[in-house]
């Protein structure tokens, strides 16, 4: 590869196969498909601790879950992501009332998961719990070498760059999305959502107990069902369809002792959503 010095209005260029193609061009995609993707941290298990479903329940739900995570620390490398919960909903409600656009809601959505992550870090500090933010990912290998348990706020760093939805103003990418994208880029071993329901039902079990439990389903099939409510942000399903590494997620009920351990061991204890 070489540099071509441009005279006058000519570009100073670098000769690469990309030189004359635009990134939206099919050639660029073809070029990308020639090499297989590498996994950055393939032995890490990414787990999300729900905001409304776990954190807002306080010690009765949180403490046993942390005990179970600590008990698994020697056997499994883990990265914890944390959701927001009712305070995020409160901030969204006020912001919606004030006429705030999606991008501002996405920015407000960051702060509450940070609070939750800070609380978890304090609770887990004696077991190596450390708070990491978006810039700390390159240090993860060190943290694992030191036996740390990294905890991150689940919200992706989109904020002002969160795209508007066709209808409504709730940001599409919230903590479920951020946690899955983390698992995808790391090429993680697993991606598990610790919530307070067994998994996915055809209705929201909090408001309609007559729904049917779905133990395992393809992401496309679930999208096609067009359910009025979902246990996970729909954008996770759309992204799953294009996953290069993290092609399966499991949603489990973390309030039942043993479920987290079994999920970490690769057992099917909740709902598995997958893509080919």
């Amino acid at each position: 590869m070489s540099i071509i010095k441009g005279e006058g209005l000519d570009r100073t260029d670098i000769i690469t196969p990309f030189k004359d193609i635009s990134f939206s061009h099919a050639d660029a995609e073809q070029l990308a498909s020639q090499t297989s993707v590498m996994r950055i941290l393939p032995d890490v298990n990414v787990l999300k601790i729900g905001g409304q479903s776990i954190m807002d329940r306080g010690r009765s739900a949180v403490m046993p879950i942390l005990d179970e995570l600590i008990a698994n620390q020697d056997k499994h490398k883990m990265l914890l992501g944390v959701g927001g919960g009712t305070r995020a909903r409160h901030a969204y409600a006020v912001a919606l009332d004030l006429g705030m656009p999606t991008q501002i809601l996405a920015k407000l959505g960051v702060n509450v998961p940070v609070q939750n992550a800070r609380m978890l870090q304090m609770l887990l500090a004696r077991h190596g719990g450390i708070l990491i933010d978006h810039d700390d990912f390159a240090k993860l290998p060190l943290y694992y070498r030191l036996g740390c348990l990294p905890i991150m706020p689940g919200m992706p760093p989109y904020e002002y760059w969160e795209k508007p939805a066709a209808v409504g103003r709730i940001p599409a990418n919230r903590t479920d999305s951020g946690v899955w994208l983390t698992a995808e880029v790391l090429g993680a071993k697993s991606c598990t959502y610790i919530k307070d329901e067994k998994g996915l039902f055809t209705t929201n079990p909090k408001s309609d107990p007559n729904g049917t439990f779905i133990p395992k389903i393809h992401a496309q099939e679930l999208l096609d069902m067009n359910l009025p409510d979902l246990v996970i942000e729909p954008i996770v399903l759309e992204n799953l369809l294009h996953a290069k590494c993290s092609k399966e997620i499991q949603i489990i009920n973390g309030t039942i002792p043993g479920n987290i351990t079994r999920a970490l061991n690769g057992e099917h204890v909740g709902t598995i959503i997958y893509a080919d």
Partner: peptide, 12 residues
């Protein structure tokens, strides 16, 4: 600033 959280591309 999507960084590591850039969603997987639909192709490539």
């Amino acid at each position: 600033p999507y960084h590591y959280w850039e969603p997987p591309a639909r192709g490539g």
